[in-house]
Amino acid sequence: MQTPSNLRKPPKRAEAISTAPLLTFDATTRHYGDVIAVSAVSCEIAEGSFVALVGASGSGKSTLLKMVNTLEAPSAGRVLFTGDDVTNQPPAQLRRRIGYVFQGIGLFPHMSVAENIAIGPRLAGESLTAGRIGELLEQVEMEADMAARMPDELSGGQRQRVGVARALAIEPELLLMDEPFGALDPITRDALGETVRDLHDRLGLTTIMVTHDMAEALLLADRVIVMDAGAIVADCSPHDLLAGQGGEIAQGLVAVPRQQAEKLAAMERE
């Protein structure tokens, strides 16, 4: 694990970007019967930003994310992507513009790694060259000759790397990640987080990542949105959060990795 000291500097890119947001939540609400999962959330995501959505289980962060690519439909309010209501376009068309990586990974078990990566372009009627597939594998730090493997021949970390490559293959305008590293061991998790952050910078992506792990959010994102009971309770940079801003719930989440780091540092001194 990295310690808070080599924390990323506040975003360089965000200020430089045009004023129109890539994504807008406009009083977006989702309830299941009487249970409210997301309660009138409004916020804007600028192009090029890396946003972490953090919160405890049931805070509504995943539901909010899934309303972007319409895996969930809002009960009220809107989600605007490049200025258009997402529910006004055919779901398949919308989703082919948005990369989606999630905890379940969901590689198609009957398709090779290459076929899995090429599925998005294939759906749009295009085919990827072997060279392009090799390039995508390299981007997620895998050997090009893995292309012929079947998913069940890969380790968990390798599978999720292929999952990321699959999402990148469509050259997404937006990358959604729902607990992408949740099922991986800490070392794999850390390495893959670094890979994704590097790709974000290198390819100029806009990324929203849902995680319940505040340390991960602080280390990777340049904007952290904290949710609780379906509402946003904090929205600031990692730097400001570590400086004590964002309120009680956010600070409660920040306290956990901070205390762990302090204890570890104290043990090292002994």
């Binding site: 690519n69 379940g104 590689l107 009957h110 599925i119 759906l123």
Partner: peptide
């Protein structure tokens, strides 16, 4: 069928027919 695989099928932008043909039927 693995719910993760079905979620991925939706996530990558398959239409209902494509999902049936490319994922559900072969599996």
């Amino acid at each position: 069928l693995d719910p993760g695989v079905l979620e991925a099928a939706d996530g990558v932008g398959m239409t209902g027919w494509q999902k049936l043909r490319l994922v559900e039927a072969p599996l």
